[in-house]
């Protein structure tokens, strides 16, 4: 049976190496994918993911269980990725403060969860066009959209990662998709 987050954290803090390995196994794919989508450089992901978990282990004592452990680690992964982008002087075009200023979306225009990917078969070429268009979006729309495409991340998780309200995440995803459609139409 899988340990609960609290139990896993307690065992890691007690120095149980197997528990530490289980924590990494449980969250590594998500954390690495978050980093990859943020920095867009596959070569950097291994090192940055390692940095994420080392930071997580150092700060594990401060994990208070208010968010899921995976969300907490993805938040650290996002910060590690942002630090890397800053180091490369490819500063992201938004800050949490900027995102908070996004005007709220009308209720009936709220972004829905992404459609079931299995419901539609699309060609590799079509997917590649969408991915290229996504890469061309401004960071403020690209990141929430790229994170929302991860099945395990809900809007509330993304809100916590980016440090912005859930409504703003929905707005950014909705507007990001609209922008994506515009770019694909040209």
């Amino acid at each position: 049976m899988e340990d609960s987050d609290a139990e896993l954290v307690r065992r890691c803090l007690a120095g149980d190496q197997a528990a530490c390995a289980r924590l990494v196994s449980r969250c590594a794919r998500m954390a690495g994918t978050v980093i990859w989508r943020a920095v867009r450089d596959r070569e950097l992901v291994d090192d940055l993911c390692q940095e994420t978990f080392l930071r997580a282990f150092r700060a594990l004592g401060s994990f208070d269980g208010r968010a899921r452990l995976s969300t907490w680690i993805c938040s650290i992964a996002h910060r590690v990725a942002m630090d890397e982008l800053r180091r490369q002087k490819r500063r992201p075009q938004f800050s949490a403060g900027e995102l908070r200023d996004e005007p709220p979306l009308e209720e009936d225009g709220a972004a829905g969860q992404l459609a079931d990917p299995l419901a539609l078969a699309i060609s590799d070429e079509e997917a590649a066009r969408v991915h290229a268009a996504l890469d061309s979006l401004p960071e403020r729309y690209r990141l929430p959209l790229a994170y929302a495409a991860l099945q395990e991340l809900g809007y509330d998780d993304i809100a916590m990662m980016l440090g912005i309200p859930v409504g703003t995440v929905k707005t950014l995803v909705f507007r990001g998709k609209a922008l994506l459609r515009e770019r694909l139409a040209t």
């Binding site: 459609a115 990917p117 997917a127 991915h131 790229a146 929302a148 495409a149 459609r181």
Partner: peptide, 8 residues
């Protein structure tokens, strides 16, 4: 578009 994004 959603289907393509899910294939990232």
């Amino acid at each position: 578009i959603d289907a393509a994004l899910a294939r990232l």
